[in-house]
Nucleic acid binder design. Structure first.
Length: 654
DNA sequence: TATCGAAATG
C-alpha cells in the first residue's frame, strides 16, 4: 500500500488528489486500487485522470495491456495522447502488433482527434516489425495527408518500415528526398540537429542494404557518410558478419578501434565476435575480451555467450568454460553455446554433465541443445545413448524433431556402420529429405567403403542438388578408392559439362594477431621458400617415422609419386609448416580449415605433433581435432574403416 | 506528459 492509499481512508473526496498521486503507484495492484477510488468518487470522466491511469497501465514497468485497453474502452473523452499511448503500448508487444494498426485505423475513422507526430512512429514501427508493406503504405498516405513528412521521427520510422519490408526502392526515394539537401527539410529540421538526423537516416538505410544482402551499396553509403555514430559502425560490422564477410567485418572493426573519437560498445563486440569465431582468430578474440573488461563493458548473458562461443570455436574450450562459469546469469542460449562447444571438441561426457546441470537449473533443453547432444554421441560413437536421447527429446521434453535431428541420427547410425538403418530412417522421416541429410549418409558410405548404397545416394543427391560438387566428388572418390578409373573419368566429365568445381581446400592460421590464409598448393606467401623447405623436412621425417602417404585420398589418376606431392601441399600442411617456422618451440598451433581434414593429413598431424613436440589444434568443417603426443582427441572414431557387422546388417561386399 | 537506428546458439 503506498502513501496515497493511506490517505484515501481519511480524504476520500479530496478533489486535490489526482495525477501526482497516481504516479506514486509502484505496482499494478496499487494502480487498480487507485483506479477503484476514482470510480467510487465518480471522477473517471476526468480526462487527465483517466489518461494518467491509462499511461501507467500501458507503458510502466508493470504494464498490463489488457487492463490498459479496458481503461481505454471506458474513457468517455479520448484525447490524442490516450490514443497514442495505446497504439504505442500495442506496438511494443510481440503478439498484438496488428492491433496497433487496427486501433490506429479506428482513430483515423472516428476522426474525433487527429493523429499527430507521436502517433505515426508507433504505428509505423508495428508495420515495420510485421513487415506489412500494404498497411505501411496506407500509413504513408496518411503521413502526407496530415503534413508530417518532414518530421524527423516520422520519416525515420517510415524509412525503417520500407527497409523492414525489403522495399529498397521506396526507401531510396524517401531517403534521397530527405537527405540530399531539399529545401523544406532544411527549413523544418533545425540546423544543429540536421547532422544527427542524417546519421540516423543513413544508419537505417545502410541497415536496409544489409538486409537485402547488398553489402556493396551498404559500404558505399557508409563510406560517403559525413558523420558516423557508433551505431553506423555497428550496422556495418554486423552486416558484414551476418552475410558471411568475416574478414570485412574484422577490417571495419579494426578501423573503428583506430578512430580517435570512436569507441566500440557492447553491441560492437557482440557483432564482431561471430566473425572472429568463424575465422578462429583467437588473438583478436582475446583482445576483445580484454577490451570489454578494461572498458567496464558488462559481460552479461548476451556478450558472454558470444565470448564463450568465440573461445570454443577458436580452439580454447578451457577458456570458454571459464568465461561461462563467470556469467552473472544464464539462459537457454548460454547453455546451448557451452554445450555445443563441448560437443565440437568431442567432450561427450562433459556434454552430458552440463546437460544435467542445465536441467537442474530449471532450464529445459531446446532443439539446439539436442543437436549438440546428438552430434556428441555421434562423434563418440555412442549409438545407444544417441537413440535414448532422441527418445528423451520427443517423449520426455516434448520437442518435435527437426530435420537436423534426423541428420544427427543418420550421422550417428552411418558412422557406426548401420548404413541400411540410416537409409531407412531418411526414407521414413516425416519431412522431405534435403541434400544435407543425404550428404551425411554419403559421408558414412565413403567411410565404410560401401559403394552400393553410396552410388545410390550419390545419384539421389545429383538430382536434388545438381550444382553442388559434394555428390560428384564423393562418387568419384569412391570409384577412385576402388580403382575404377573409368568411373572417375565419367564423373569428372559430368562435372566439367555442368561446370561444377570442388571447393578449394583452404586453411587459416593466426600468428601474432595476423591471419594467414593458405590454399592447396599455395606458394603465394612471402615466406613461401621457407615454408617449402619446412614441408620437405616434415615429409622426410614422416618417412623416417614409417608414415606411408595414403594416396587413395587423391582422386586424380596420376602416378603414386605425384600423388604424394599433392598430399604434401594440402592447405593444412602448409599452414602447419608456416606455424612451425613462425613460432617458438612448444607453442601450440591452431588452424582452421574450410573442409573436412583428409585421412592422410589426419595421420600425418598426429606424427607431426609428436615429432615437433607441439600441440596442434585443427578445426575442420565439422569439429575440433586436438593432436598431441601422437594421437588425436577424436579417437580416430571418424576414421573407422571396418566396423564389426551390426546385427541384422548383411554386408553386401561379402 | 512521449517519439529514432545496431545485438548471441546448430
Amino acid at each position: 500500500m503506498n502513501a496515497f492509499m493511506f490517505q484515501t481512508n481519511t480524504a476520500c473526496h479530496d478533489p486535490h488528489i489526482g495525477v501526482p498521486q497516481i504516479r506514486t503507484c509502484k505496482s499494478m495492484r496499487e494502480l487498480k486500487q487507485v483506479h477503484a477510488f476514482f470510480v467510487k468518487t465518480a471522477r473517471t470522466h476526468d480526462t487527465t485522470i483517466a489518461t494518467e491511469i491509462l499511461r501507467l497501465g500501458a507503458t510502466s514497468d508493470f504494464r498490463d495491456i489488457g487492463y490498459a485497453l479496458s481503461v481505454f474502452d471506458q474513457m468517455p473523452n479520448r484525447n490524442c495522447f490516450a490514443w497514442n499511448t495505446v497504439i504505442r503500448a500495442l506496438a511494443e508487444t510481440q503478439d498484438r502488433l496488428l492491433d496497433a494498426f487496427f486501433v490506429f485505423c479506428k482513430m483515423v475513422t472516428e476522426a474525433t482527434v487527429e493523429p499527430n507526430r507521436f502517433t505515426f512512429p508507433s504505428v509505423l514501427k508495428a508495420c515495420a516489425v510485421m513487415a506489412r508493406f500494404e498497411e505501411g503504405k496506407q500509413v504513408h498516405g496518411l503521413v502526407l495527408k496530415f503534413g508530417l513528412v518532414n518530421d524527423e521521427f516520422v520519416v525515420t520510422n517510415l524509412l525503417r518500415m520500407y527497409v523492414m519490408c525489403g522495399s529498397m526502392d521506396d526507401a531510396h526515394v524517401l531517403f534521397y528526398r530527405n537527405v540530399e539537401g531539399v529545401d523544406d527539410v532544411r527549413r523544418l529540421v533545425r540546423e544543429e540537429r540536421r547532422g544527427e538526423f542524417n546519421v540516423v537516416l543513413c544508419n537505417v538505410m545502410v541497415d536496409g542494404y544489409v538486409r537485402v544482402g547488398n553489402l556493396k551499396a551498404a559500404r558505399d553509403l557508409f563510406d560517403r557518410m559525413a558523420q558516423r555514430s557508433v551505431v553506423s559502425w555497428n550496422v556495418m560490422i554486423s552486416g558484414y558478419a551476418q552475410n558471411g564477410f568475416y574478414r570485412e567485418a574484422i577490417e571495419v572493426f579494426r578501423r573503428m578501434t583506430q578512430m580517435r573519437d570512436m569507441s566500440p560498445n557492447r553491441v560492437t563486440l557482440i557483432s564482431v565476435l561471430p566473425a572472429i569465431s568463424r575465422l578462429g582468430a583467437l588473438e583478436l578474440g582475446k583482445w576483445v575480451h580484454l577490451y570489454a573488461e578494461k572498458s567496464k563493458i558488462r559481460i552479461d548473458d548476451v556478450l558472454g555467450s558470444a565470448l564463450v562461443d568465440m573461445y570454443a570455436k577458436c580452439g580454447s574450450i578451457e577458456k570458454a568454460i571459464l568465461v561461462f562459469e563467470e556469467l552473472p546469469q544464464n539462459n537457454v542460449i548460454t547453455w546451448n553455446v557451452v554445450i555445443s562447444g563441448l560437443a565440437m571438441h568431442g567432450k561427450a561426457n562433459d556434454v552430458f554433465n552440463y546437460l544435467s546441470r542445465m536441467e537442474k537449473c530449471g532450464i529445459s533443453p531446446s532443439d539446439v541443445t539436442y543437436i549438440a547432444i546428438l552430434s556428441a554421441c555421434s562423434h563418440a560413437g555412442l549409438v545407444d545413448k544417441g537413440r535414448s536421447f532422441f527418445n528423451d527429446m520427443v517423449n520426455r521434453v516434448g520437442l518435435e524433431p527437426k530435420i537436423e535431428h534426423y541428420g544427427c541420427m543418420v550421422d550417428l547410425l552411418g558412422r557406426a556402420g548401420y548404413l541400411e538403418e540410416a537409409e531407412q530412417l531418411i526414407l521414413s522421416m516425416p519431412m522431405k529429405p534435403d541434400d544435407v541429410i543425404w550428404k551425411a549418409l554419403l559421408g558414412s558410405c565413403k567411410m565404410h567403403k560401401n559403394i552400393e548404397i553410396g552410388t545410390r545416394v550419390a545419384e539421389v543427391l545429383m538430382q536434388l542438388a545438381p550444382h553442388d560438387s559434394g555428390a560428384y566428388v564423393a562418387l568419384s572418390n569412391m570409384y577412385a578408392s576402388s580403382g575404377n578409373w573409368d568411373g572417375v573419368a565419367e564423373v569428372r566429365l559430368m562435372m566439367k559439362d555442368m561446370d561444377i568445381r570442388k571447393d578449394p581446400g583452404c586453411s587459416w592460421i593466426e600468428i601474432d594477431g595476423v591471419t594467414h590464409e593458405f590454399l592447396v598448393e599455395d606458394d603465394s606467401h612471402p615466406r613461401a621458400k621457407d615454408i617449402h623447405s619446412m614441408l620437405k623436412e616434415i615429409s622426410n621425417k614422416l618417412s623416417l617415422e614409417g608414415h606411408m602417404p595414403d594416396t587413395t585420398q587423391v582422386l586424380l589418376k596420376m602416378d603414386e609419386k605425384n600423388k604424394e606431392i599433392v598430399l604434401h601441399y594440402h592447405s593444412e600442411k602448409i599452414a602447419v609448416a608456416f606455424g612451425l617456422i613462425s613460432t617458438p618451440p612448444k607453442t601450440s598451433l591452431c588452424i582452421v580449415k574450410n573442409l573436412r581434414i583428409c585421412e592422410d593429413c589426419h595421420s600425418s598431424m598426429k606424427l607431426i605433433a609428436k615429432m615437433y613436440e607441439r600441440k596442434i589444434v585443427i578445426r575442420d568443417r565439422k569439429r575440433f581435432h586436438h593432436f598431441e603426443h601422437g594421437s588425436c582427441s577424436c579417437m580416430d572414431y571418424c576414421r573407422v574403416v571396418s566396423p564389426s557387422t551390426p546385427p541384422g546388417f548383411t554386408n553386401s561386399n561379402g
